[in-house]
């Protein structure tokens, strides 16, 4: 493994899986057999000739033999990445950044709220919590997607849903045909979700507008800001706190984040861009 954090290691693409119309998962095989990371951390992925971007690790932290990333194709690098096939190579730097506070949350109920691709950065936290299930109170996952076809990891969600020790609620913005579950925004699931607001830690991952409405609903239930954790996104270059590209007020998202305690960044989220 490279010791210089600015120099990527080459990883071989083991498997490519199409998840939804615009989302795919790459399974990479680490050169040194194991790639250890904490839930919430990300890697810088370099696609030859296209560029380098931050992508969260979405695999199981307790199974470091394969390195998994799920990506939504939105622009030049992610679309180039989508064209990779098994056997191709990809540059990887990482892991970087802060983690979901899975240890600190022990003893509490945990409510995980996410939408769209936001489930990918949270999946390692779900794996980790379920691996130590006995140490948590209620575990609740509230997930929103645009339509039933946009739901990420549907088989895995069904598996979680069938467990007796986890509450899983999925909602979509609109549905046609045979969808029999919730339709409406993910925040609508919060008032009835089974957690004790006095003893709950919340993890939220999604676009900032979703974070805003979600925190508002959690606060209506009585959760305090210091029990809410959010994952933030900013454009990145170095990922090690040098270049300043990812600055958010006094923080560098690559080093001080991407996972922040909500009370630490709340004020910055309220500032409107000019």
């Amino acid at each position: 493994m490279n010791t210089d954090p600015m120099v990527p290691d080459l990883f071989r693409v083991q498997k490519v899986r199409k998840e939804t119309l615009d989302t795919f998962t790459l399974e990479l095989s680490p050169k040194q057999k194991k790639f250890r990371f904490e839930p919430g951390q990300f890697n810088m992925l370099y696609v030859s000739g296209a560029g380098e971007i931050p992508i969260s690790i979405s695999g199981n932290p307790n199974q470091p033999e394969s390195l998994i990333h799920t990506t939504r194709a939105v622009g030049s690098v992610t679309n180039a990445m989508r064209k990779l096939k098994a056997g191709d190579y990809l540059g990887v730097r990482g892991p970087f950044g802060t983690k979901w506070p899975v240890d600190k949350a022990m003893g509490d109920d945990v409510v995980i709220i996410t939408g769209g691709i936001g489930l990918a950065p949270l999946r390692p936290a779900v794996y980790d919590i379920l691996a130590k299930r006995g140490r948590y109170g209620n575990v609740v996952l509230l997930y929103g997607a645009r339509t039933p076809e946009d739901i990420l990891y549907p088989k895995e969600i069904m598996g979680w849903r069938s467990r007796f020790d986890m509450d899983v609620h999925v909602t979509v913005d609109r549905a046609a045909g045979s969808w029999h579950s919730n339709v409406g925004v993910v925040t609508k699931l919060i008032p009835k979700a089974p957690f004790d607001p006095q003893n709950t830690t919340a993890f939220i991952c999604g676009p900032e507008v979703m974070i805003r409405f979600t925190t508002q609903e959690l606060k209506k239930r009585g959760l305090s800001d210091d029990k809410i954790y959010v994952s933030m996104e900013r454009n990145m270059k170095c990922a090690i706190g040098f270049c300043g590209h990812c600055q958010l007020g006094p923080y560098f998202v690559c080093k001080d984040g991407p996972v922040f305690r909500y009370d630490e960044i709340k004020r910055l989220l309220e500032i409107r861009e000019v």
């Binding site: 939504r72 939408g115 769209g116 691709i117 936001g118 929103g144 997607a145 645009r146 946009d150 913005d173 609109r174 409406g184 925004v185 993910v186 925040t187 609508k188 999604g206 676009p207 900032e208 507008v209 979703m210 409405f213």
Partner: peptide, 13 residues
């Protein structure tokens, strides 16, 4: 209010 949030397409913003 809920429908306005839905219109914002919050999961892909």
């Amino acid at each position: 209010q809920a429908q306005r949030v839905q219109l914002l397409d919050v999961y892909s913003a």
